[in-house]
Nucleic acid binder design. Structure first.
Lengths: 234, 234
DNA sequence: GCTTATTTATACGAAGCGGTACATAAATCA
DNA sequence: TGATTTATGTACCGCTTCGTATAAATAAGC
């Protein structure tokens, strides 16, 4: 039950007791990268797009309900290739999660860089969040971090640490937002940026959960608008 | 991948084509209930406690990661008994979820009946929530509804409907709270009880997620206090 | 050409899964 | 007592799961 999640520890890999690692991405001379003239048979996949496909599946079904066959079908890679490229299921999950985080961070970074007044800024952030959480071919998928934090993946210390850092990162992002808005006088001096940041994160979380449960988009938008009003002392 | 979740449809059960249902709880003459003198071999389990044990497991691990062996071990019932009493894994899940909802509803009902001023009322509600979400022998378990909504369990329409109704019920509970507080003048007349209710629910959700990710209790309490201050126009 | 390096493709194996047949046990009813 | 009813315990079934062993394919280096 506990041990179930820590499988029997891979055997030393028959021959080659030395470099048993799943290879993954070789050093590969920086990124000046013309064809690096690799030696053996060329890959039939691009690691980045394969990872994105795997993300789609994990995002939709969660860790436990996703099988290697699902991942194989989604990426077009057969099982040994998958294993060779990304390691086992858990490692693959971590890598997809990392790519998700990077993507989300990038989008949030853009918004912050846009440097606009607080209210439209918040509206834009929540607009992006709704777009992400409601997307998905087979219905809304919610937020990967929330899924991860809520699901059994938390039993892995690494994954849990990643989830926590995802939550904290979002808190800090909002806190910075409110702090600068306050400095500019867009927010009452008596306001507590930290508390507002928590509420802003909480609003993200609640729409993620509700999107996943397939609540109608209009409801989610109403929640967002109400939250913004309160946060801005409507 | 989709069909995976809708297994081959149970065969008509060999003999007895008529009453094939898993029996569950027989009518059982109201509740005046001295020993009802049932006919065959007596049960070796109490349905209520068995359900509570099953809830513990599902709550900790989620639907997909919980095996019938886990449930069997937790309840002390062997697999056929489990099946006879509660139906298959999905049905058992639904029944455990229902019992969870009833429990949560009862506790919230108590608080509402206590009829105290808004702030201590909120403090007490979040206190109960934290207690529930942080409990669990192997670490905090968060909120079952959030877990359910976030996990693959939502792919079942029934379960999704239950999850949505759980979310809506909490919204309504908070809305009623804020409305009566407003009528009593404990809340500014300009306040929007609906929006505040969403935020109050969102705060529940965010602490559920964070508890599950094992954020320290003090952090969760700080979030709750900040949220209450903002909601009450601190 | 042959050797070496790297990836793909097939296919297997041990373990786990949900569910059920079947025989046994323990109670009531006649 | 024996028939009937209900629940248990064992053992099994077919299927899926994750991971890997092995062989074939495709490239570069010589």
């Amino acid at each position: 039950m506990v041990q179930k999640r820590n499988p029997p520890a891979p055997r030393p890999k028959s021959a080659k007791p030395g470099l048993a690692k799943p290879a993954a991405a070789r050093p590969e001379p920086p990124s000046g990268g013309v064809p690096p003239k690799r030696r053996g048979r060329p890959r039939a996949y691009e690691p980045d797009v394969a990872l994105a496909r795997a993300l789609d599946v994990f995002w939709k079904d969660g860790f436990a309900a996703t099988s290697l066959d699902d991942l194989s079908a989604a990426t077009g890679m057969n099982r040994p290739s998958l294993y060779g490229a990304f390691g086992d299921k858990r490692e693959l999950y971590k890598k997809t999660y990392e790519s998700y985080r990077n993507r989300a961070r990038a989008r949030m970074g853009e918004v912050f860089a846009a440097d606009m007044p607080l209210r439209p800024m918040l509206e834009r952030i929540y607009g992006i969040a709704l777009e992400m959480y409601l997307s998905g071919e087979d219905g809304p998928r919610g937020c990967f971090t929330v899924m991860t934090a809520a699901s059994e993946a938390v039993f892995d210390p690494d994954i849990r640490a990643m989830a926590v850092s995802g939550l904290v990162e979002m808190d800090r992002f909002f806190a910075r937002l409110f702090r600068t808005a306050q400095e500019r006088g867009e927010l009452a001096a008596s306001a507590d940026p930290q508390a507002l940041a928590s509420l802003a994160s909480a609003t993200i979380h609640t729409i993620a959960i509700r999107a996943r449960a397939r609540m109608p988009r209009a409801d989610l938008e109403a929640i967002v608008n109400g939250a913004i009003d309160v946060m801005l002392r409507g």
